[in-house]
């Protein structure tokens, strides 16, 4: 039974791995990797929720009168998550560009070193 929630387990595990990486890593790029993982886990969650067992792609099949109305998967979460993916890409791009600027400005992307420099400043 619990195996039936496989996708959700994966979602939770990925979410936690992502969050842990964000919090525990010192390197800004690794933090960004963690953040991406964190966001992607939610995409997985939305996609899983839209799937209905035995459901097919939500395209109206015309002309087949002999078969019963097919079961469709819910398309809405999938569409939503397209938006969220775009947002995720934007976040990653912005985050990485900030990391580049930090590297240019501070000469390092290790949080500890930067904190040390900031305190000295």
């Amino acid at each position: 039974m619990s195996f039936g929630f496989f996708n959700y387990w994966v979602f939770i595990i990925l979410l936690m791995i992502g969050l842990y990486t964000v919090m525990s890593r010192n390197n800004f790029v690794k933090k960004m990797i963690g953040l991406s993982l964190f966001q992607i886990s939610v995409f997985l969650f939305y996609i899983s929720m839209g799937k209905i067992s035995g459901g097919t792609a939500p395209i109206v099949i015309s002309g087949s009168l002999d078969t019963a109305e097919p079961i469709y998967s819910n398309p809405l979460p999938h569409v939503l998550i397209l938006t969220a993916i775009v947002v995720g890409i934007a976040t990653t791009a912005l985050g990485l560009s900030l990391v580049v600027r930090i590297k240019e400005s501070f000469g390092t992307i290790e949080e500890d070193d930067i904190l040390e420099m900031e305190d000295g400043a």
Partner: peptide, 11 residues
Amino acid sequence: RALTAAFQYLI
């Protein structure tokens, strides 16, 4: 430090 502040806020 605006850069690190923005990065922290982003995360």
